[in-house]
Amino acid sequence: MTTAPKQEIELKQLFVSDAGTVSALVIGAGGADFTTAPAVTFIGACTRPAQAVAEIAAGAVSALHIIDPGEGYAAAPTVGFTGGGGTGATATATVNAADASGRFKFLCFVTSCEAQEQRSFQERRVRDCDVPSAKPVTQVTSGSYSANYSLTGFASPARLTWKLLRNAIRSGRRLEFQDKDDMLAKAGGGADVFLAYMENLGTSMPDEGTVGFTATLKVDGAKAWAPAA
């Protein structure tokens, strides 16, 4: 009995960039004497500040949860704490730069992804001015390009990629996506990178800690294809 060779194929997958957002918070010191959870502050240049909440245990900050990763951070902001009655808590933030190789995060909660591209054309009949008796020649010229994605799936409310989608439709911000298709170079694979707006986002009631959703992406501009390395 022979074993079929392993197919090293990465199936079609969709990723979203977290460039310019706060992607992680790490507690340096929990501090002491907190009677209530302090407010978390972010100090640093951005287009929309991040938001996070703290948890306390035994008078110290024990956990941090990103509510809104913000946008437009070129460098990690300084994390601070105010209120709560305690002192000494510290934390550091991680921000993905726009050119970071790891800026794309897998949208693993997407259960279906349908892409539709459309190019308009204009057809006209043109006469030869030098030969008026000749029959008009049909010419076709390329017009506008548009593309859309329809997504369905389930998301963990705590997952950063879900927060990026949710906050994008509320702020009107463009997101950067990567659409991978069979990443083996010998199989002709590669990836489309494109910018898109969240045009629609519908959510269903949470089920066992997840939120069901449907979404439509409106691609802004043409996709940029890069073959697999």
Rank of each mutant, 00 (worst) to 15 (best):
A50P: 01
T94E: 11
T92R: 13
V79S: 01
T78Q: 15
L107E: 01
V95Q: 01
D68Y: 10
F104L: 06
G80R: 06
A93C: 04
I56Y: 06
Q51R: 15
D68C: 10
V61L: 10
H65Q: 14
C113Q: 08
T111L: 12
P49S: 13
G72N: 03
G72M: 00
F109E: 09
V53R: 15
A52L: 07
E55N: 14
F81R: 04
A93S: 02
G85E: 01
C108M: 13
V110I: 15
A58K: 12
V79D: 00
G86R: 10
G59F: 05
D99R: 13
G72E: 00
E55M: 14
T111Y: 04
A54R: 07
H65F: 13
F109K: 03
A74W: 00
F81E: 02
C108G: 14
S101M: 13
G86N: 07
G70L: 01
A91Q: 01
V79M: 00
G85Y: 06
H65L: 14
A57Q: 12
A63S: 12
S62H: 08
A75P: 00
V53N: 13
S112P: 05
G88K: 06
L64A: 07
G83M: 08
T87Y: 09
T90I: 06
I67C: 14
P49R: 12
G83A: 06
I67Q: 15
A54C: 08
